[in-house]
Write a protein that binds this DNA or RNA. Sequence first.
DNA 1: CTAGGGTTAG
Length: 615
Amino acid sequence: MLSQGVMLDRHVLPTIIKACAGLSFLNTGKQAASTGCFAYSALLAGYARKGCVKETKELFSKRADEGVELNLVSWNGMIAGFNHSGRHLEAVIMFQKMHLEAFKPDGTSISSVLSAVGDLEMLILGFQIHGYAIKMGIGQDKCVVSALIDMYGKCACTLEMSEVFDEMCQMDVGACNALVMGLSRNGLVDNALKVFRQFKGQGIELNVVSWTSIIGSCSQNGKDIEALELFREMQLVGVKPNSVTIPCLLPACGNIAALMHGKAAHCFSLKSGISSNVYVGSALIDMYAKCGRIHVSKLCFDMMLTRNLVSWNALMAGYAMHGKTKEAIDIFQWMQRSGPKPDFVSFICVLSACSQGGLTDEGWYYFRSMSKDYGIEARLEHYACMVNLLGRAGRLQEAHTMIKQMPFKPDACVWGALLSSCRVHNNVSLGEIAAKKLFELEPRNPGNYILLSNIYASKAMWDEVNMVRNMMKSKGLRKNPGCSWIEIKSKVHMLVAGDNSHPQMAQIIEKLAELSIEMKKSGCFPDTDFVLQDVEEQDKEQILCGHSEKLAVVLGLLNTSPGSSIQVIKNLRICGDCHAVIKFISSFEKREIFVRDTNRFHHFKDGVCSCRDYW
DNA sequence: CTAGGGTTAG
Protein backbone atom coordinates (compact mmCIF):
# COMPACT_ATOMS: atom_id res chain seq x y z
CA MET A 1 0.00 0.00 0.00
CA LEU A 2 2.78 2.42 0.97
CA SER A 3 4.84 1.46 -2.03
CA GLN A 4 1.95 2.49 -4.25
CA GLY A 5 2.07 5.96 -2.76
CA VAL A 6 -1.15 5.68 -0.79
CA MET A 7 -0.84 7.64 2.44
CA LEU A 8 -1.88 6.27 5.81
CA ASP A 9 -4.59 8.31 7.38
CA ARG A 10 -5.76 8.41 10.97
CA HIS A 11 -8.35 5.70 10.29
CA VAL A 12 -6.04 3.14 8.76
CA LEU A 13 -3.27 3.41 11.32
CA PRO A 14 -5.31 2.30 14.36
CA THR A 15 -6.39 -0.79 12.46
CA ILE A 16 -2.78 -1.71 11.82
CA ILE A 17 -1.86 -1.09 15.45
CA LYS A 18 -4.68 -3.22 16.68
CA ALA A 19 -3.54 -6.02 14.40
CA CYS A 20 0.01 -5.64 15.71
CA ALA A 21 -1.17 -5.96 19.30
CA GLY A 22 -3.20 -8.99 18.39
CA LEU A 23 -0.21 -10.65 16.78
CA SER A 24 2.10 -9.67 19.65
CA PHE A 25 4.15 -7.41 17.40
CA LEU A 26 3.81 -4.91 20.15
CA ASN A 27 7.02 -3.06 19.38
CA THR A 28 5.89 -2.41 15.85
CA GLY A 29 2.70 -1.08 17.36
CA LYS A 30 4.59 1.20 19.73
CA GLN A 31 6.49 2.84 16.94
CA ALA A 32 3.31 3.53 15.10
CA ALA A 33 1.62 4.94 18.17
CA SER A 34 3.57 8.16 18.29
CA THR A 35 1.06 9.72 15.97
CA GLY A 36 -1.62 10.88 18.34
CA CYS A 37 -4.76 10.01 20.14
CA PHE A 38 -6.37 7.69 17.60
CA ALA A 39 -3.30 5.51 17.43
CA TYR A 40 -2.76 5.71 21.17
CA SER A 41 -6.29 4.51 21.79
CA ALA A 42 -5.84 1.60 19.47
CA LEU A 43 -2.65 0.49 21.16
CA LEU A 44 -4.14 0.83 24.65
CA ALA A 45 -7.12 -1.24 23.62
CA GLY A 46 -4.79 -3.76 21.98
CA TYR A 47 -2.72 -4.20 25.14
CA ALA A 48 -5.80 -4.50 27.34
CA ARG A 49 -7.34 -7.03 24.96
CA LYS A 50 -4.23 -9.16 25.30
CA GLY A 51 -4.51 -8.92 29.08
CA CYS A 52 -1.24 -7.00 29.38
CA VAL A 53 -2.11 -5.03 32.51
CA LYS A 54 1.38 -3.68 33.09
CA GLU A 55 1.92 -2.42 29.54
CA THR A 56 -1.49 -0.80 29.40
CA LYS A 57 -0.87 1.07 32.61
CA GLU A 58 2.63 2.16 31.55
CA LEU A 59 1.42 3.52 28.26
CA PHE A 60 -1.56 5.04 30.00
CA SER A 61 0.61 7.03 32.40
CA LYS A 62 3.08 7.96 29.65
CA ARG A 63 0.46 9.70 27.56
CA ALA A 64 0.82 12.98 29.48
CA ASP A 65 4.57 13.18 28.80
CA GLU A 66 3.94 12.83 25.12
CA GLY A 67 1.24 15.45 25.29
CA VAL A 68 -1.48 13.16 24.07
CA GLU A 69 -5.03 13.90 25.16
CA LEU A 70 -7.08 10.73 25.63
CA ASN A 71 -10.70 10.77 24.67
CA LEU A 72 -13.76 8.67 25.40
CA VAL A 73 -12.72 6.04 22.88
CA SER A 74 -9.40 5.53 24.67
CA TRP A 75 -11.16 4.84 27.94
CA ASN A 76 -13.80 2.64 26.40
CA GLY A 77 -11.18 0.68 24.51
CA MET A 78 -9.30 -0.09 27.70
CA ILE A 79 -12.39 -1.07 29.66
CA ALA A 80 -13.67 -3.29 26.86
CA GLY A 81 -10.19 -4.68 26.29
CA PHE A 82 -9.67 -5.71 29.90
CA ASN A 83 -13.13 -7.16 29.93
CA HIS A 84 -12.37 -9.16 26.80
CA SER A 85 -9.21 -10.67 28.26
CA GLY A 86 -10.99 -11.70 31.44
CA ARG A 87 -9.39 -8.95 33.57
CA HIS A 88 -12.77 -7.98 34.93
CA LEU A 89 -11.50 -6.24 38.02
CA GLU A 90 -9.09 -4.15 35.94
CA ALA A 91 -12.02 -3.11 33.77
CA VAL A 92 -13.95 -1.96 36.83
CA ILE A 93 -10.90 -0.08 38.14
CA MET A 94 -10.48 1.68 34.80
CA PHE A 95 -14.10 2.74 34.91
CA GLN A 96 -13.62 4.13 38.39
CA LYS A 97 -10.47 6.00 37.30
CA MET A 98 -12.39 7.46 34.42
CA HIS A 99 -15.03 8.60 36.85
CA LEU A 100 -12.36 10.15 39.13
CA GLU A 101 -10.83 12.05 36.22
CA ALA A 102 -14.31 13.46 35.62
CA PHE A 103 -14.70 11.86 32.20
CA LYS A 104 -18.36 11.43 31.36
CA PRO A 105 -19.05 7.81 30.36
CA ASP A 106 -21.34 7.00 27.47
CA GLY A 107 -23.49 3.96 26.83
CA THR A 108 -20.52 1.95 25.62
CA SER A 109 -18.50 2.62 28.78
CA ILE A 110 -21.43 1.67 30.96
CA SER A 111 -22.20 -1.49 29.03
CA SER A 112 -18.57 -2.65 29.11
CA VAL A 113 -18.20 -2.12 32.80
CA LEU A 114 -21.56 -3.75 33.54
CA SER A 115 -20.42 -6.87 31.74
CA ALA A 116 -17.36 -7.02 34.01
CA VAL A 117 -19.47 -6.27 37.09
CA GLY A 118 -21.72 -9.17 36.15
CA ASP A 119 -18.82 -11.57 35.77
CA LEU A 120 -17.54 -10.50 39.17
CA GLU A 121 -21.09 -10.78 40.54
CA MET A 122 -20.65 -7.39 42.22
CA LEU A 123 -24.37 -6.81 42.50
CA ILE A 124 -24.17 -3.74 44.77
CA LEU A 125 -21.88 -1.99 42.30
CA GLY A 126 -24.26 -3.10 39.57
CA PHE A 127 -27.16 -1.36 41.31
CA GLN A 128 -25.05 1.78 41.73
CA ILE A 129 -24.08 1.89 38.07
CA HIS A 130 -27.71 1.29 37.13
CA GLY A 131 -28.71 4.34 39.17
CA TYR A 132 -25.81 6.36 37.78
CA ALA A 133 -26.81 5.54 34.20
CA ILE A 134 -30.36 6.75 34.89
CA LYS A 135 -29.03 9.94 36.47
CA MET A 136 -26.81 10.55 33.46
CA GLY A 137 -29.87 10.25 31.25
CA ILE A 138 -28.66 7.16 29.37
CA GLY A 139 -30.77 4.62 31.22
CA GLN A 140 -32.61 3.86 27.97
CA ASP A 141 -29.53 3.65 25.77
CA LYS A 142 -29.80 0.38 23.84
CA CYS A 143 -26.37 -0.83 24.93
CA VAL A 144 -27.07 0.09 28.53
CA VAL A 145 -30.39 -1.70 28.62
CA SER A 146 -29.01 -4.97 27.31
CA ALA A 147 -25.94 -4.70 29.52
CA LEU A 148 -28.19 -4.25 32.56
CA ILE A 149 -30.20 -7.31 31.62
CA ASP A 150 -26.94 -9.22 31.13
CA MET A 151 -25.53 -8.03 34.47
CA TYR A 152 -28.67 -8.94 36.44
CA GLY A 153 -28.70 -12.30 34.71
CA LYS A 154 -25.11 -13.01 35.72
CA CYS A 155 -25.96 -12.01 39.31
CA ALA A 156 -28.93 -14.43 39.32
CA CYS A 157 -31.41 -11.54 39.74
CA THR A 158 -33.99 -12.77 37.26
CA LEU A 159 -36.65 -10.48 38.69
CA GLU A 160 -34.62 -7.29 38.16
CA MET A 161 -33.63 -8.64 34.76
CA SER A 162 -37.23 -8.98 33.62
CA GLU A 163 -38.08 -5.58 35.10
CA VAL A 164 -35.43 -3.85 33.01
CA PHE A 165 -36.68 -5.68 29.94
CA ASP A 166 -40.34 -4.84 30.57
CA GLU A 167 -39.61 -1.19 31.27
CA MET A 168 -37.53 -0.51 28.22
CA CYS A 169 -39.07 2.01 25.88
CA GLN A 170 -37.93 0.70 22.55
CA MET A 171 -37.76 -2.91 21.40
CA ASP A 172 -34.22 -4.01 20.64
CA VAL A 173 -32.67 -7.31 19.52
CA GLY A 174 -29.73 -6.85 21.88
CA ALA A 175 -32.05 -6.72 24.85
CA CYS A 176 -33.92 -9.79 23.60
CA ASN A 177 -30.65 -11.67 23.27
CA ALA A 178 -29.56 -10.66 26.75
CA LEU A 179 -32.89 -11.84 28.15
CA VAL A 180 -32.65 -15.23 26.44
CA MET A 181 -29.09 -15.71 27.75
CA GLY A 182 -30.05 -14.54 31.22
CA LEU A 183 -32.89 -17.02 31.44
CA SER A 184 -30.83 -20.00 30.29
CA ARG A 185 -27.93 -18.96 32.48
CA ASN A 186 -30.24 -19.31 35.46
CA GLY A 187 -31.44 -22.77 34.53
CA LEU A 188 -34.60 -21.54 32.81
CA VAL A 189 -33.94 -22.97 29.34
CA ASP A 190 -37.57 -23.72 28.70
CA ASN A 191 -38.45 -20.09 29.38
CA ALA A 192 -35.57 -19.02 27.16
CA LEU A 193 -36.92 -21.14 24.32
CA LYS A 194 -40.41 -19.79 24.93
CA VAL A 195 -39.40 -16.12 24.75
CA PHE A 196 -37.19 -16.84 21.76
CA ARG A 197 -40.21 -18.25 19.95
CA GLN A 198 -42.28 -15.24 21.01
CA PHE A 199 -39.69 -12.82 19.67
CA LYS A 200 -39.62 -14.70 16.40
CA GLY A 201 -43.42 -14.66 16.25
CA GLN A 202 -43.49 -10.91 16.90
CA GLY A 203 -41.38 -10.43 13.82
CA ILE A 204 -38.34 -9.14 15.67
CA GLU A 205 -35.33 -9.38 13.37
CA LEU A 206 -33.31 -11.99 15.19
CA ASN A 207 -29.64 -11.89 14.30
CA VAL A 208 -26.78 -14.37 14.38
CA VAL A 209 -26.17 -13.63 18.07
CA SER A 210 -29.78 -14.47 18.91
CA TRP A 211 -29.63 -17.81 17.10
CA THR A 212 -26.20 -18.66 18.41
CA SER A 213 -27.25 -17.96 21.98
CA ILE A 214 -30.29 -20.15 21.88
CA ILE A 215 -28.39 -22.97 20.15
CA GLY A 216 -25.67 -22.78 22.81
CA SER A 217 -28.23 -22.77 25.60
CA CYS A 218 -29.86 -25.88 24.19
CA SER A 219 -26.64 -27.84 23.75
CA GLN A 220 -25.55 -26.94 27.26
CA ASN A 221 -28.80 -28.01 28.81
CA GLY A 222 -29.52 -31.40 27.35
CA LYS A 223 -31.70 -30.10 24.52
CA ASP A 224 -29.44 -31.42 21.81
CA ILE A 225 -32.06 -32.28 19.23
CA GLU A 226 -33.58 -28.82 19.64
CA ALA A 227 -30.12 -27.34 19.05
CA LEU A 228 -29.80 -29.25 15.77
CA GLU A 229 -33.27 -28.16 14.67
CA LEU A 230 -32.58 -24.52 15.52
CA PHE A 231 -29.37 -24.63 13.51
CA ARG A 232 -31.34 -25.80 10.49
CA GLU A 233 -34.04 -23.24 11.10
CA MET A 234 -31.64 -20.31 11.32
CA GLN A 235 -30.23 -21.14 7.91
CA LEU A 236 -33.74 -21.55 6.58
CA VAL A 237 -34.63 -17.99 7.59
CA GLY A 238 -31.42 -16.73 6.02
CA VAL A 239 -29.20 -16.05 9.02
CA LYS A 240 -25.66 -17.21 8.29
CA PRO A 241 -23.92 -19.11 11.09
CA ASN A 242 -20.44 -17.89 11.98
CA SER A 243 -17.36 -19.02 13.90
CA VAL A 244 -19.20 -18.72 17.22
CA THR A 245 -22.31 -20.58 16.11
CA ILE A 246 -20.36 -23.72 15.17
CA PRO A 247 -18.66 -24.24 18.57
CA CYS A 248 -22.08 -23.75 20.18
CA LEU A 249 -23.69 -26.36 17.96
CA LEU A 250 -20.98 -29.05 17.93
CA PRO A 251 -21.33 -30.11 21.58
CA ALA A 252 -24.95 -30.99 20.79
CA CYS A 253 -23.76 -33.29 17.99
CA GLY A 254 -21.23 -34.87 20.32
CA ASN A 255 -23.70 -35.30 23.15
CA ILE A 256 -26.00 -37.49 21.08
CA ALA A 257 -23.30 -38.85 18.72
CA ALA A 258 -24.99 -37.24 15.73
CA LEU A 259 -22.00 -37.77 13.47
CA MET A 260 -23.76 -36.76 10.27
CA HIS A 261 -24.85 -33.44 11.72
CA GLY A 262 -21.36 -32.91 13.12
CA LYS A 263 -19.82 -33.61 9.73
CA ALA A 264 -22.26 -31.21 8.10
CA ALA A 265 -21.17 -28.51 10.52
CA HIS A 266 -17.55 -29.33 9.73
CA CYS A 267 -18.25 -28.96 6.00
CA PHE A 268 -19.98 -25.69 6.64
CA SER A 269 -16.89 -24.44 8.49
CA LEU A 270 -14.64 -25.43 5.62
CA LYS A 271 -16.86 -23.79 3.02
CA SER A 272 -17.27 -20.56 4.96
CA GLY A 273 -13.60 -20.27 5.79
CA ILE A 274 -13.87 -20.49 9.56
CA SER A 275 -12.36 -23.93 9.98
CA SER A 276 -9.04 -22.53 11.19
CA ASN A 277 -10.69 -20.76 14.11
CA VAL A 278 -9.38 -22.22 17.41
CA TYR A 279 -12.80 -22.54 18.94
CA VAL A 280 -14.12 -24.34 15.87
CA GLY A 281 -11.09 -26.64 15.78
CA SER A 282 -11.28 -27.56 19.46
CA ALA A 283 -15.00 -28.17 19.25
CA LEU A 284 -14.44 -30.44 16.22
CA ILE A 285 -11.86 -32.50 18.13
CA ASP A 286 -14.37 -32.98 20.91
CA MET A 287 -17.26 -33.75 18.58
CA TYR A 288 -15.41 -36.42 16.58
CA ALA A 289 -14.13 -38.06 19.77
CA LYS A 290 -17.63 -38.20 21.21
CA CYS A 291 -18.96 -39.64 17.95
CA GLY A 292 -16.45 -42.49 18.12
CA ARG A 293 -14.04 -41.08 15.50
CA ILE A 294 -11.00 -40.45 17.66
CA HIS A 295 -8.63 -40.75 14.71
CA VAL A 296 -10.46 -37.89 13.00
CA SER A 297 -10.03 -35.87 16.21
CA LYS A 298 -6.31 -36.41 15.88
CA LEU A 299 -6.41 -35.31 12.21
CA CYS A 300 -8.26 -32.12 13.15
CA PHE A 301 -5.73 -31.48 15.88
CA ASP A 302 -2.81 -31.98 13.50
CA MET A 303 -4.32 -29.67 10.91
CA MET A 304 -4.93 -26.79 13.30
CA LEU A 305 -2.78 -23.75 12.58
CA THR A 306 -3.13 -22.44 16.12
CA ARG A 307 -4.00 -24.55 19.12
CA ASN A 308 -4.79 -23.53 22.64
CA LEU A 309 -5.04 -25.34 25.94
CA VAL A 310 -8.57 -26.45 25.17
CA SER A 311 -7.48 -28.11 21.90
CA TRP A 312 -4.90 -30.19 23.74
CA ASN A 313 -7.23 -31.04 26.59
CA ALA A 314 -10.02 -32.00 24.22
CA LEU A 315 -7.77 -34.48 22.41
CA MET A 316 -6.51 -35.99 25.66
CA ALA A 317 -10.04 -36.27 26.99
CA GLY A 318 -10.98 -38.00 23.75
CA TYR A 319 -8.24 -40.57 24.09
CA ALA A 320 -9.15 -41.10 27.74
CA MET A 321 -12.78 -41.63 26.83
CA HIS A 322 -11.74 -44.22 24.24
CA GLY A 323 -9.57 -46.06 26.74
CA LYS A 324 -6.46 -45.15 24.72
CA THR A 325 -4.31 -44.58 27.74
CA LYS A 326 -0.97 -44.63 26.00
CA GLU A 327 -2.03 -42.09 23.39
CA ALA A 328 -3.41 -39.78 26.07
CA ILE A 329 -0.18 -39.92 28.03
CA ASP A 330 1.85 -39.36 24.85
CA ILE A 331 -0.16 -36.22 24.12
CA PHE A 332 0.35 -35.07 27.69
CA GLN A 333 4.11 -35.51 27.39
CA TRP A 334 4.16 -33.79 24.01
CA MET A 335 2.26 -30.95 25.62
CA GLN A 336 4.81 -30.76 28.43
CA ARG A 337 7.61 -30.47 25.89
CA SER A 338 6.14 -28.09 23.36
CA GLY A 339 2.59 -27.13 24.20
CA PRO A 340 0.83 -24.78 26.58
CA LYS A 341 1.31 -25.26 30.31
CA PRO A 342 -1.11 -27.98 31.50
CA ASP A 343 -3.94 -26.72 33.69
CA PHE A 344 -6.20 -28.52 36.15
CA VAL A 345 -8.36 -29.88 33.32
CA SER A 346 -5.30 -31.41 31.65
CA PHE A 347 -4.64 -33.35 34.83
CA ILE A 348 -8.24 -34.51 35.05
CA CYS A 349 -7.82 -35.86 31.52
CA VAL A 350 -4.54 -37.64 32.14
CA LEU A 351 -5.78 -39.08 35.44
CA SER A 352 -8.95 -40.37 33.88
CA ALA A 353 -6.86 -41.93 31.10
CA CYS A 354 -4.79 -43.74 33.71
CA SER A 355 -7.98 -44.83 35.38
CA GLN A 356 -9.38 -46.35 32.16
CA GLY A 357 -6.16 -48.26 31.66
CA GLY A 358 -5.79 -49.36 35.27
CA LEU A 359 -2.40 -47.62 35.56
CA THR A 360 -2.33 -46.86 39.27
CA ASP A 361 1.39 -46.08 39.54
CA GLU A 362 1.29 -43.59 36.68
CA GLY A 363 -1.85 -42.07 38.20
CA TRP A 364 -0.09 -41.50 41.51
CA TYR A 365 2.89 -40.07 39.65
CA TYR A 366 0.80 -37.45 37.80
CA PHE A 367 -1.28 -36.68 40.88
CA ARG A 368 1.86 -35.80 42.83
CA SER A 369 3.56 -34.06 39.92
CA MET A 370 0.57 -31.74 39.57
CA SER A 371 1.31 -29.76 42.73
CA LYS A 372 5.04 -30.50 42.91
CA ASP A 373 6.00 -29.53 39.35
CA TYR A 374 3.11 -27.36 38.22
CA GLY A 375 1.93 -25.69 41.41
CA ILE A 376 -1.65 -26.79 40.74
CA GLU A 377 -3.48 -27.77 43.92
CA ALA A 378 -5.62 -30.89 43.61
CA ARG A 379 -9.33 -30.17 43.42
CA LEU A 380 -12.28 -32.38 44.26
CA GLU A 381 -12.31 -33.63 40.65
CA HIS A 382 -8.74 -34.87 40.92
CA TYR A 383 -9.54 -36.73 44.10
CA ALA A 384 -12.58 -38.25 42.41
CA CYS A 385 -10.31 -39.44 39.58
CA MET A 386 -7.87 -40.97 42.03
CA VAL A 387 -10.61 -42.70 44.01
CA ASN A 388 -11.96 -44.06 40.76
CA LEU A 389 -8.50 -45.18 39.63
CA LEU A 390 -7.65 -46.94 42.87
CA GLY A 391 -11.10 -48.30 43.49
CA ARG A 392 -11.54 -49.86 40.08
CA ALA A 393 -8.13 -51.44 40.32
CA GLY A 394 -9.41 -53.16 43.46
CA ARG A 395 -7.46 -51.03 45.91
CA LEU A 396 -10.63 -50.02 47.74
CA GLN A 397 -9.04 -49.48 51.15
CA GLU A 398 -6.45 -47.18 49.64
CA ALA A 399 -9.24 -45.27 47.90
CA HIS A 400 -11.11 -44.90 51.18
CA THR A 401 -7.97 -43.73 52.96
CA MET A 402 -7.49 -41.13 50.25
CA ILE A 403 -11.01 -39.80 50.89
CA LYS A 404 -10.41 -39.65 54.62
CA GLN A 405 -7.17 -37.74 54.14
CA MET A 406 -8.26 -35.22 51.54
CA PRO A 407 -7.99 -31.59 52.63
CA PHE A 408 -11.62 -30.69 51.99
CA LYS A 409 -15.04 -32.19 52.43
CA PRO A 410 -15.57 -34.98 49.88
CA ASP A 411 -18.56 -34.39 47.62
CA ALA A 412 -20.98 -36.75 45.92
CA CYS A 413 -18.62 -37.34 42.96
CA VAL A 414 -15.90 -38.63 45.26
CA TRP A 415 -18.21 -40.92 47.24
CA GLY A 416 -19.90 -41.95 44.01
CA ALA A 417 -16.54 -43.06 42.60
CA LEU A 418 -16.03 -45.22 45.68
CA LEU A 419 -19.53 -46.68 45.54
CA SER A 420 -19.21 -47.65 41.86
CA SER A 421 -15.89 -49.31 42.58
CA CYS A 422 -17.51 -51.22 45.42
CA ARG A 423 -20.12 -52.39 42.96
CA VAL A 424 -17.42 -53.59 40.55
CA HIS A 425 -15.70 -55.58 43.31
CA ASN A 426 -18.90 -56.28 45.26
CA ASN A 427 -17.55 -54.93 48.54
CA VAL A 428 -20.46 -54.68 50.99
CA SER A 429 -18.84 -52.98 53.99
CA LEU A 430 -17.23 -50.07 52.12
CA GLY A 431 -20.19 -49.84 49.79
CA GLU A 432 -22.44 -49.26 52.79
CA ILE A 433 -20.17 -46.47 54.06
CA ALA A 434 -20.13 -44.73 50.68
CA ALA A 435 -23.86 -45.18 50.16
CA LYS A 436 -24.66 -43.75 53.60
CA LYS A 437 -22.75 -40.57 52.74
CA LEU A 438 -24.40 -40.35 49.33
CA PHE A 439 -27.89 -40.75 50.80
CA GLU A 440 -27.14 -37.64 52.87
CA LEU A 441 -25.51 -35.68 50.05
CA GLU A 442 -28.00 -36.46 47.30
CA PRO A 443 -30.99 -38.25 48.78
CA ARG A 444 -32.95 -38.07 45.55
CA ASN A 445 -30.46 -39.71 43.20
CA PRO A 446 -31.84 -43.16 42.41
CA GLY A 447 -28.50 -44.38 41.01
CA ASN A 448 -26.94 -44.66 44.46
CA TYR A 449 -29.77 -46.84 45.79
CA ILE A 450 -29.55 -49.07 42.75
CA LEU A 451 -25.81 -49.54 43.16
CA LEU A 452 -26.10 -50.50 46.81
CA SER A 453 -28.98 -52.83 46.11
CA ASN A 454 -26.94 -54.48 43.35
CA ILE A 455 -24.04 -55.01 45.72
CA TYR A 456 -26.40 -56.73 48.17
CA ALA A 457 -27.96 -58.76 45.40
CA SER A 458 -24.57 -60.01 44.25
CA LYS A 459 -24.14 -61.53 47.73
CA ALA A 460 -27.74 -62.84 47.80
CA MET A 461 -28.55 -60.51 50.73
CA TRP A 462 -32.23 -60.29 49.79
CA ASP A 463 -33.47 -58.69 53.02
CA GLU A 464 -31.05 -55.82 52.48
CA VAL A 465 -32.04 -55.57 48.83
CA ASN A 466 -35.65 -55.16 49.88
CA MET A 467 -34.73 -52.62 52.51
CA VAL A 468 -33.00 -50.41 49.92
CA ARG A 469 -35.88 -50.81 47.48
CA ASN A 470 -38.29 -49.77 50.22
CA MET A 471 -36.18 -46.72 51.02
CA MET A 472 -36.51 -45.71 47.38
CA LYS A 473 -40.23 -46.38 47.35
CA SER A 474 -40.82 -44.32 50.49
CA LYS A 475 -39.07 -41.39 48.86
CA GLY A 476 -41.07 -41.88 45.70
CA LEU A 477 -37.94 -42.60 43.64
CA ARG A 478 -37.77 -44.86 40.63
CA LYS A 479 -34.81 -46.17 38.78
CA ASN A 480 -33.80 -43.75 36.02
CA PRO A 481 -34.91 -45.37 32.81
CA GLY A 482 -32.06 -46.53 30.61
CA CYS A 483 -32.04 -44.58 27.41
CA SER A 484 -30.01 -44.93 24.22
CA TRP A 485 -29.64 -42.91 21.05
CA ILE A 486 -28.69 -43.95 17.56
CA GLU A 487 -28.40 -41.81 14.45
CA ILE A 488 -29.63 -43.52 11.30
CA LYS A 489 -29.50 -41.57 8.04
CA SER A 490 -29.25 -38.24 9.87
CA LYS A 491 -32.25 -39.00 12.04
CA VAL A 492 -31.68 -39.51 15.74
CA HIS A 493 -33.73 -42.30 17.34
CA MET A 494 -34.20 -42.53 21.08
CA LEU A 495 -34.95 -45.87 22.73
CA VAL A 496 -36.07 -46.13 26.32
CA ALA A 497 -35.93 -49.38 28.27
CA GLY A 498 -39.42 -50.76 28.71
CA ASP A 499 -40.95 -48.45 26.11
CA ASN A 500 -42.34 -50.34 23.12
CA SER A 501 -43.44 -47.34 21.14
CA HIS A 502 -40.75 -47.50 18.46
CA PRO A 503 -42.49 -48.46 15.19
CA GLN A 504 -39.94 -51.23 14.50
CA MET A 505 -40.16 -52.75 17.96
CA ALA A 506 -41.64 -56.05 16.75
CA GLN A 507 -38.79 -56.53 14.30
CA ILE A 508 -36.27 -55.66 17.00
CA ILE A 509 -37.67 -58.27 19.37
CA GLU A 510 -37.69 -60.86 16.63
CA LYS A 511 -34.09 -60.15 15.68
CA LEU A 512 -33.03 -60.25 19.35
CA ALA A 513 -34.66 -63.65 19.78
CA GLU A 514 -32.79 -64.96 16.73
CA LEU A 515 -29.52 -63.63 18.07
CA SER A 516 -30.12 -65.13 21.47
CA ILE A 517 -30.60 -68.56 19.90
CA GLU A 518 -27.39 -68.14 17.91
CA MET A 519 -25.61 -67.03 21.03
CA LYS A 520 -26.63 -70.09 23.00
CA LYS A 521 -25.64 -72.31 20.07
CA SER A 522 -22.13 -70.94 20.24
CA GLY A 523 -21.98 -71.48 23.97
CA CYS A 524 -22.41 -67.90 25.22
CA PHE A 525 -24.76 -67.42 28.16
CA PRO A 526 -25.88 -64.18 29.74
CA ASP A 527 -24.01 -63.04 32.81
CA THR A 528 -26.30 -64.07 35.68
CA ASP A 529 -24.74 -61.58 38.07
CA PHE A 530 -26.18 -58.73 36.05
CA VAL A 531 -29.55 -60.34 35.64
CA LEU A 532 -29.96 -60.11 39.41
CA GLN A 533 -30.29 -56.36 39.25
CA ASP A 534 -33.62 -56.69 37.53
CA VAL A 535 -35.50 -58.85 40.00
CA GLU A 536 -37.91 -56.05 40.93
CA GLU A 537 -41.43 -56.14 39.60
CA GLN A 538 -41.13 -52.75 37.87
CA ASP A 539 -38.16 -54.00 35.87
CA LYS A 540 -39.81 -57.18 34.55
CA GLU A 541 -40.71 -55.55 31.26
CA GLN A 542 -37.12 -54.51 30.85
CA ILE A 543 -36.01 -58.12 30.97
CA LEU A 544 -38.54 -58.93 28.28
CA CYS A 545 -37.63 -56.04 26.03
CA GLY A 546 -33.98 -55.83 26.87
CA HIS A 547 -31.94 -52.86 27.81
CA SER A 548 -32.02 -49.78 25.62
CA GLU A 549 -28.47 -50.19 24.31
CA LYS A 550 -29.28 -53.67 23.01
CA LEU A 551 -32.43 -52.36 21.34
CA ALA A 552 -30.54 -49.52 19.72
CA VAL A 553 -27.79 -51.78 18.41
CA VAL A 554 -30.38 -54.11 16.90
CA LEU A 555 -32.24 -51.16 15.38
CA GLY A 556 -28.94 -50.22 13.79
CA LEU A 557 -28.49 -53.76 12.46
CA LEU A 558 -31.92 -53.65 10.87
CA ASN A 559 -31.56 -50.27 9.19
CA THR A 560 -27.99 -50.06 7.97
CA SER A 561 -26.21 -51.99 5.27
CA PRO A 562 -24.32 -55.17 6.22
CA GLY A 563 -20.78 -54.53 7.36
CA SER A 564 -21.24 -50.84 8.16
CA SER A 565 -20.46 -49.66 11.66
CA ILE A 566 -23.01 -48.82 14.32
CA GLN A 567 -22.82 -46.25 17.08
CA VAL A 568 -24.97 -45.96 20.11
CA ILE A 569 -24.83 -43.81 23.18
CA LYS A 570 -26.39 -44.53 26.54
CA ASN A 571 -27.35 -42.32 29.48
CA LEU A 572 -26.24 -44.87 32.09
CA ARG A 573 -23.36 -47.29 32.27
CA ILE A 574 -23.53 -50.28 29.97
CA CYS A 575 -24.67 -53.45 31.72
CA GLY A 576 -22.61 -56.63 31.72
CA ASP A 577 -25.27 -58.64 29.92
CA CYS A 578 -25.53 -56.15 27.09
CA HIS A 579 -21.77 -55.96 26.92
CA ALA A 580 -21.59 -59.72 26.36
CA VAL A 581 -24.41 -59.68 23.82
CA ILE A 582 -22.88 -56.84 21.81
CA LYS A 583 -19.50 -58.56 21.78
CA PHE A 584 -21.25 -61.57 20.28
CA ILE A 585 -23.14 -59.43 17.74
CA SER A 586 -19.92 -57.77 16.60
CA SER A 587 -18.43 -61.10 15.58
CA PHE A 588 -21.61 -62.86 14.44
CA GLU A 589 -22.79 -59.95 12.27
CA LYS A 590 -19.28 -58.79 11.33
CA ARG A 591 -19.90 -55.25 12.49
CA GLU A 592 -17.87 -52.65 14.31
CA ILE A 593 -20.05 -51.32 17.10
CA PHE A 594 -19.32 -48.23 19.18
CA VAL A 595 -21.20 -47.79 22.43
CA ARG A 596 -20.57 -44.71 24.52
CA ASP A 597 -21.85 -44.91 28.07
CA THR A 598 -21.56 -42.29 30.82
CA ASN A 599 -18.02 -43.37 31.47
CA ARG A 600 -16.27 -44.20 28.25
CA PHE A 601 -16.38 -45.72 24.79
CA HIS A 602 -16.72 -49.42 24.12
CA HIS A 603 -15.49 -50.34 20.67
CA PHE A 604 -16.65 -53.83 19.81
CA LYS A 605 -14.94 -55.66 16.98
CA ASP A 606 -14.59 -59.38 16.19
CA GLY A 607 -16.08 -60.38 19.51
CA VAL A 608 -13.81 -58.30 21.71
CA CYS A 609 -14.24 -54.89 23.29
CA SER A 610 -11.64 -52.14 23.48
CA CYS A 611 -12.18 -51.90 27.24
CA ARG A 612 -10.83 -55.42 27.58
CA ASP A 613 -13.74 -55.98 29.98
CA TYR A 614 -12.24 -53.47 32.41
CA TRP A 615 -14.79 -50.73 33.06
C1' DC B 1 -10.07 2.24 17.70
C1' DT B 2 -16.23 1.41 21.26
C1' DA B 3 -21.36 -4.64 23.24
C1' DG B 4 -23.72 -8.81 22.81
C1' DG B 5 -22.91 -15.25 21.46
C1' DG B 6 -17.63 -19.39 22.12
C1' DT B 7 -14.59 -24.89 22.49
C1' DT B 8 -12.07 -28.92 27.07
C1' DA B 9 -13.38 -32.03 32.62
C1' DG B 10 -17.23 -33.51 36.08
